[in-house]
C-alpha cells in the first residue's frame, strides 16, 4: 500500500536515540513522537493487521531470558509487519546453560547480522550492560522490576486514544509497585505527559519514598477510587518476592481486587487497564476484566503499534539535512 503519512516516511531528526532502555530518560517530546508514530502506523496498517515494508533488510533478535508470550510475539509481529527479519533466542535453547556469559551470548547473536536486539532479563540493568557491550541497538523488553518501556508506552497510548490528552487525568497504578517494571515505566511516562499518578497497594509493596518524585501514595483503594480516571491493575509478581508481602491472596483480593462492587463507586467513564497476564480473581474479577470499562485487549493491539514505532525510530531511514 502507499504511504501518505509524513511521520513514518523518514525518521525525524529530533529522534537521536540508538537504544530504548527506559522511559525515565525520555523527554515529553520523545514520548509524544513515539506515540504519534505509533498512532500513524496503526492507522496506515488497518489497526496493525497489514504490512508496511519500512524495515526491509533489518534483522531483529528477541533475546528473552525470562518467560514471555505476549511481549515476544508482539515484538516479532511488529518487526514482520515492517518487513524486517526476526530471530528468537530463549535462554533454555541458548548456550547460557553451558556457562556462557550473557555478554558473550549477545555478541554471538549480534555477529549473525542482527541490527536490533530486544532483551528481557530478570535482572535490572542487563539491557544496559548489553547496550554498552554491543554495536547494535538494544530495546529493553523488561529488566526485572526496573523498566518495561514499551509496556508503559502502550498503556499510555491506550489512555490517550480514549481521552485524547493525558494532562490533568488521574491514573492509579494498583497492586505490586515494588516488583513492577510496568509501574516504573508508567510513572515516568505519565508524569512527563502531565497526568496525576497515584500508587496504591499494600504498604509492603508501595514505598512512601515515591512521594519525593511527585506521585501520590495510598494504601487504600476504596479511598482513592472515586477520583480516578484510569485504573491500571498490576499483577502480583509472586516469582520475584523473597518473602510474602501480605498474609494471603484472599486478604489481598479483599483489599485491592477490582470487582463489580468497587466499579459502582468509580467514575462512570473509568478506564480499566491491566498489563497482563491477569490473575482473574486476584487483582481483577472476570466481570470487570471483560466488562465495558476494560481496554485490556486494546492494550494488546496498541502494543504492536508502539513496538512498530520504536523499531522504526531506532532503525529506520533517518531524515537528512539535505533531504
Amino acid at each position: 500500500m502507499s504511504v501518505v503519512t509524513p511521520e513514518i516516511e523518514m525518521v525525524p531528526a529530533s529522534w537521536t536515540r540508538r537504544h530504548l532502555l527506559g522511559l525515565e530518560d525520555l523527554t515529553a517530546g520523545e514520548l509524544n513522537l513515539i506515540l504519534d508514530t505509533a498512532t500513524a502506523f496503526k492507522r496506515e496498517t488497518a489497526g496493525c493487521t497489514q504490512k508496511i515494508a519500512k524495515l526491509a533488510g533489518v534483522t531483529m533478535a528477541n533475546l528473552f531470558f525470562e518467560n514471555s508470550t505476549r511481549t515476544r510475539t508482539s515484538f516479532s509481529l511488529a518487526a514482520r509487519r515492517l518487513g524486517a527479519d526476526t530471530v528468537d533466542f530463549a535462554s533454555s535453547s541458548s548456550s547460557m546453560s553451558k556457562g556462557e556469559t550473557v555478554v558473550d551470548t549477545a555478541r554471538n547473536i549480534e555477529a549473525m547480522g542482527v541490527n536490533v536486539m530486544v532483551v528481557r532479563h530478570r535482572t535490572p540493568g542487563t539491557p544496559h550492560l548489553l547496550a554498552k557491550s554491543l554495536d547494535c541497538s538494544v530495546i529493553n523488553a523488561g529488566d526485572g522490576p526496573h523498566e518495561h518501556p514499551t509496556q508503559g508506552l502502550l498503556d499510555i497510548m491506550t489512555i490517550r486514544e480514549s481521552r485524547g490528552d493525558l494532562r490533568g487525568l488521574t491514573v492509579a497504578l494498583v497492586g505490586d509497585i515494588a516488583f513492577s517494571r510496568t509501574a516504573r515505566s508508567n510513572i515516568w511516562g505519565l508524569k512527563k505527559l502531565g497526568a496525576n499518578v497515584i500508587l496504591c497497594g499494600p504498604s509492603t509493596l508501595v514505598s512512601k519514598q515515591w512521594e519525593q518524585f511527585g506521585v501520590e501514595v495510598s494504601y487504600h483503594l476504596d479511598e482513592i477510587l472515586p477520583r480516578c480516571d484510569v485504573l491500571n491493575l498490576l499483577r502480583i509478581q509472586f516469582e520475584r518476592q523473597t518473602t510474602r508481602p501480605f498474609p494471603s491472596v484472599r486478604e489481598y483480593a479483599s483489599l485491592y481486587a477490582m470487582n463489580a462492587e468497587r466499579l459502582k463507586r468509580a467514575k462512570n467513564d473509568v478506564l480499566i487497564l491491566a498489563p497482563g497476564p491477569i490473575n482473574r480473581g486476584v487483582e481483577v474479577t472476570p466481570d470487570v476484566a471483560d466488562g465495558p470499562h476494560s481496554v485490556i485487549l486494546d492494550q494488546v493491539t496498541n502494543g504492536l503499534a508502539v513496538r512498530m514505532a520504536v523499531l522504526w525510530l531506532i532503525s529506520g531511514k533517518p531524515m537528512r539535512d539535505d533531504g
Binding site: P124, G125, H146, A178, R181, R184, Q209, W210, T242
Partner: peptide
C-alpha cells in the same frame, strides 16, 4: 539481605534492584 545487590533506599527503589 537475601538476594540483595545494593543498599536499600531511594535508588534501589527506582532501579528495582533488591
Amino acid at each position: 539481605t537475601v538476594g540483595g545487590v545494593m543498599h536499600e533506599g531511594q535508588v534501589s527503589m527506582l532501579l528495582g534492584l533488591p
